[in-house]
């Protein structure tokens, strides 16, 4: 799968309570399939997908596509694997934080997950996308969209209501995260360039 024929290796990690649909969402994203059977993830796993990212330039013209190799880490939501899964937090560039729209507790635990991320991620403010999953089960929903949005806003992270079952917003969520990462890199670029320029300028004087 990974023959090195790509421009960027981007590593994401999905986290959230057990049973919220992390594995299913990733499966839906990478394979476009859904299996309603609940198979608990053993510790960790990952899936891969190759995508092309086109940044929208300021002028609306997209540049050359960047070939992205996505490594999507899937983590066990179960508490018993926690020490193991958190060890992987540090290796992800971005995070898909999932909760189950039909499970209030999983939503309440989002805060805890965020705090875990803050502790273990590669930096203090990593890029995160919040996903309220199982949006297809509208009749069982216990988490209101407003609540979730409010929370997401509070933390300044994008929020999507996704459905691994029907694929709603799944790609969008991942792509949004990818966009955040690419933007972050661009910022790095800009910053560095700025610094370089600055240095050159000062050298001239």
């Amino acid at each position: 799968m990974s023959d090195g024929d790509y421009d960027y290796l981007i590593k994401f990690l999905a986290l959230g309570d057990s049973g919220v649909g992390k594995t299913s969402l990733l499966y839906q994203y990478t394979d476009g399939k859904f299996n309603s059977k609940f198979i608990t993830t053993v510790g960790i796993d990952f899936r891969e997908k190759r995508v092309v990212y086109r940044a929208n330039g300021p002028d609306g013209i997209s540049g050359r596509g960047q070939r992205i190799h996505l490594q999507l880490w899937d983590t066990a939501g179960q508490e018993r694997f926690r020490s193991l899964t958190t060890a992987f937090f540090r290796d992800a560039m971005g995070f898909l934080l999932l909760f189950d729209l039909t499970n209030e507790q999983s939503f309440l635990n989002v805060r805890n997950w965020l705090s875990q991320l803050q502790t273990h991620a590669y930096c203090e403010n990593p890029d995160i996308v919040l996903c309220g999953n199982k949006s297809d089960l509208e009749d069982q929903r216990t988490v209101k969209e407003e609540e979730a949005k409010e929370l997401a806003e509070k933390y300044g992270i994008p929020y999507f209501e996704t459905s691994a079952a029907n694929g709603a917003n799944v790609s969008k969520a991942v792509e949004t995260l990818l966009d955040l990462i690419m933007k972050r890199m661009e910022r790095n670029l800009g910053k560095d360039k700025y610094q370089q320029n600055f240095i050159r300028a000062s050298a001239l004087h």
Partner: peptide, 9 residues
């Protein structure tokens, strides 16, 4: 394995 190929890249 992925890391290896990445490393190569």
């Amino acid at each position: 394995e992925l890391k290896r190929s990445e490393e190569e890249r």
